[in-house]
Structure formats: C-alpha cells, structure tokens
C-alpha cells in the first residue's frame, strides 16, 4: 500500500525543494523594495500562505458538499484534512501578518481587512474541528463536519465585506506593475511550493482519518467478540 501511494511523497519533496529555491531567491537574489526595504521579503512566504490557505479552505468546502452528497468516508476524510491543513496555513498567515504589522506599522496587531478576516476565518474552521471532535458516531460526524464546513465557508466573503465596511480606512493593495520581475519569481515558486506541501499534508491527514475510521469499524466487532466466542465454545 505504501508503494502504491509514493506519488504524494514525491509531491511533498518537490514542494520542499521549491520552498528552498523560492525562499533563497526571495531572501538573497530579489532586490529590496523601494519603501518597505528588507521587510518586504516576508511577502514571499506570506502571500503564498494566504493564497493556499484560501485554496485549501475552498477545497474543504467542495469536499464537504461531495461528502454530504455521497456519504463516502473518503470525502469526509478529505474535508477534515483540508480544514485542518487550512487551519495550519491560516495560523502561519496570522503570525506572519502580525510580524509584518509590527515591522511596518509598529504594532503587533492592526484591524486591517485581511488580517481581521483571516483571524475570524481561523476561528470559524477551528469551530468545525471542535464540533467534529465531540461527535462519536462516524456517519453523523461526517454529516455534521460537512454541514459546519459549508456554513463556515459561506461566511468568509460576508465577513470580508463586513470588515471592509467596518474599517472605513483600508490600504491600497500592491498592483502588479510596481513589482520587479525578480520579486514575482520567488512569489510564484513559493506559491507552488506551499501548494505541494499542503497537498502532501492533506493526503497524510486524510489517510490517517481513513485508518482511524477503519480501526473503529474493526474494533466494534472485537469488543463484541467474547459473546461470539462463548457461543462457539
């Protein structure tokens, strides 16, 4: 079985390699930005994390719909894996954003649209996993995880627009034409690097979930085994 699934280790290793290359270019080759100086180099991990966190949450949403539709355990495992990996990337995003805020605005936290939205997003999906951990019945756990994931994901655009209105002040997003080519390269490389690493993490997490579920199904008859054994005797 492990030999059959070697492809994901390959993707994980590729992601790791790309992360090294992209970060090397971002840290040592790319020029420092005109206004932000060296601090701008945080962007080469920050932006890829942001893109991939959103992408992985969106995958969780899609998997949740399929899981609700088909009731197949593998889609439940995929939903859980995507939600959990999304939370990991989202947490990294928050820490990087906080460091960024400290370096540029002098405070550890700023009620910036994206920073605030990502914090709320983290809480939303952490709630999904919390709910999941309290449900013992496997098929109900799958259904409820899917429902909570859908409900949480639909909230994300609402939260984004709401925070934008709530903060009348919002900063200008960097436009592509002001970015030097040597800044785009590490950004793109790292985007794919984090994507591949996220895929590797999701496959590992999903497999763990499937293994657990299989064990639950196996251990159920085992617990009943003494009754069957006494009948045989």
């Amino acid at each position: 079985m492990t030999r059959q699934f070697k492809w994901d280790s390959g993707i994980g290793l590729l992601g790791l390699l790309l992360l090294f290359v992209g970060s090397y270019i971002g840290l040592f080759v790319a020029p420092s930005e005109r206004y932000m100086g060296e601090v701008q180099r945080i962007m080469y991990v920050h932006v890829p994390c942001a893109w991939n966190a959103m992408l992985v949450y969106m995958l969780a949403f899609i998997f949740a719909i399929i899981s609700l539709w088909t009731h197949r355990p593998k889609w439940d495992a995929a939903t859980t894996a995507a939600a959990e990996v999304g939370i990991v990337l989202n947490s990294l995003l928050l820490v990087q954003g906080s460091i960024w805020a400290r370096a540029t605005w002098g405070v550890w936290w700023d009620w910036d649209v994206r920073l605030t939205t990502s914090l709320i997003m983290l809480l939303l999906f952490a709630g999904v996993l919390a709910l999941r951990s309290f449900v013992h019945d496997a098929s109900r756990r799958a259904t409820w995880t899917a429902i909570a994931t859908i409900v949480a994901f639909v909230d994300v655009p609402l939260v984004y627009f709401c925070v934008r209105w709530w903060r009348s002040l919002h900063q200008v997003q960097s436009t592509p034409d002001t970015v030097a080519p040597m800044m785009v390269v590490p950004l793109r490389i790292n985007a794919f690097a984090i994507l591949f690493i996220a895929i590797w993490m999701m496959t590992q997490r999903a497999r763990l979930e499937l293994d657990r579920r299989r064990q639950d199904q196996v251990s159920e008859p085992e617990r009943l085994a003494p009754i069957g054994g006494s009948n045989n005797a």
């Binding site: 999904v128 919390a130 309290f134 429902i147 409900v151 909230d155 709401c162 925070v163």
Partner: peptide, 29 residues
C-alpha cells in the same frame, strides 16, 4: 441549526457559542 446539532452533545454550552459567535460577526458588526 447549530442548537439542533449540539443539543445532545455533552459540551453544548461551550460548543454553541464557539460555533456561533465567529459565524455571526457580520450580524454583530
């Protein structure tokens, strides 16, 4: 929806606000 789902779980009193509060931030704002 969440009250129905959490009503039989042991930790409903914690879980319901945990799920609901982040979700209704747009309503709150």
């Amino acid at each position: 929806l969440y009250a129905a789902m959490t009503s039989r779980l042991q930790s409903q009193d914690v879980l319901l606000p945990l799920l609901l509060f982040p979700l209704v931030i747009p309503v709150l704002m």
